[in-house]
Computed example of a mutant assay.
Amino acid sequence: MKKSRRRFRATAALAVAGALSVALSGCTRYDTTTPSAARKSPAAAEDGKGGDARFGTADCRKVKCVALTFDAGPSENSPRLLDILKEKKVPATFFLLGKNHIADHPELVKRMAREGHELASHTWDHKILTDIDDAQIRTEFRRTDDAVEKLTGKRPTLMRPPQGRTDDHVSALAKEEGLAQILWDVTTKDYTTTDSALIRKRAVEQTKRDSIILLHDIYRGTVPAVPGIIDALKQKGYVFVTVPQLLAPGKAEPGKIYKP
């Protein structure tokens, strides 16, 4: 593995840990919208259908839905993950990172789109959006969106801020770019462990209806945990959907922040 990637992973792990501390401290204030509220919003589509994933859709007003999301890929682990998702007939939402990821794995980005997954942005350089100026924020958004659109023909409408750190000003700039922000309520802290059984246990224990599960396919222990997460949650009656399907018949509105 390249030294640059090892450095990025170590930095990312520390960054995510720091983000959780910030979120728990309550220092940053912003409004969020739950999936259930989105489904009742004026933006709700008349036909009740959400997204266009090949695996089909579910009416999350009537069934227990959950969204699997993966940050900071693609990586060398992504092909195995895509094989698992295809075998299990489970769609996911990928918040893709530009530098060293989209740029290095364009064929994986195309495969994700081709197999019915939702592609979204995790920015280009994983910079903390609340710490940089407006021009840099716009660059973080646009470089990633341009790259995904060039590869797939579809421009992302969803974005996840690095470390989950955002504020109203970031939301305003995201709105200009046509992006809604998606946070999460389930974290396995897979950046701290290679124990796949522990990652699976954390995911299953925290998940509830409408949960958005945060995972990272860049870490060695994560992908082996995915089959067990899927099987256990299916046994509990959950249906897996993409984030847009979770919000349907509502639609993610640019500038808004969604969190269960």
Score class of each variant (00 low, 15 high):
Ala53Tyr: 02
Ala113Glu: 00
Phe55Ser: 10
Ile84Gly: 09
Gly50Lys: 14
Val63Asp: 13
Pro91Lys: 11
Pro79Asn: 00
Asp71Gln: 11
Asn77Ile: 10
Gly51Leu: 15
Phe55Trp: 13
Arg61Lys: 15
Lys88Val: 02
Lys86Gln: 05
Glu76Pro: 08
Phe70Arg: 09
Val66Leu: 01
Lys110Arg: 09
Arg111Gln: 08
Lys64Met: 11
Glu115Cys: 04
Lys88His: 10
Asn77His: 13
Ser121Trp: 02
Asp71Phe: 10
Phe70His: 06
Cys65Phe: 11
Gly116Cys: 01
Phe95Ile: 00
Glu87Gln: 13
His105Val: 01
Pro74Val: 03
Gly50Ile: 11
Ser75Arg: 09
Asp83Met: 05
Val109Ile: 01
Ala58Arg: 12
Arg114Asp: 12
His122Met: 09
Thr93Ile: 08
Lys62Trp: 08
Pro91Val: 14
Asn100His: 12
Ala67Cys: 11
Asp59Gln: 08
Leu97Ser: 15
Gly116Ile: 05
Phe70Glu: 04
Ala92Asn: 03
Leu68Trp: 12
His117Phe: 07
Arg61Val: 11
Arg61Leu: 15
His117Met: 09
Lys62Tyr: 10
Pro106Arg: 00
Pro91Asn: 12
Asp59Gly: 12
Lys110Cys: 02
Phe55Glu: 07
Thr57Ile: 07
Asp104Glu: 15
Thr69Ile: 06
Phe55Arg: 14
Ala113Arg: 01
Val109Thr: 04
Val109Met: 01
Glu118Arg: 06
Ala92Phe: 08
Lys110Met: 02
Thr57Cys: 01
Ala120Met: 10
Arg111His: 02
Ile102Ala: 03
Pro91Tyr: 13
Ala72Met: 10
Lys89Gly: 06
Asp104His: 13
Ala72Cys: 07
Ala53Glu: 14
Gly50Ala: 13
His122Gln: 07
Phe55Leu: 11
Val66Cys: 06
Leu108Glu: 09
Val109Cys: 06
Leu81Gly: 10
Glu118Val: 03
Phe95Asp: 00
Asp52Met: 04
Met112Gln: 06
Ala92Gly: 12
Lys110Tyr: 05
Pro74Lys: 05
Pro74Glu: 05
Gly98Asp: 07
Thr69Ala: 07
Gly50Met: 14
Asp52Leu: 07
His117Gly: 05
Leu97Ile: 09
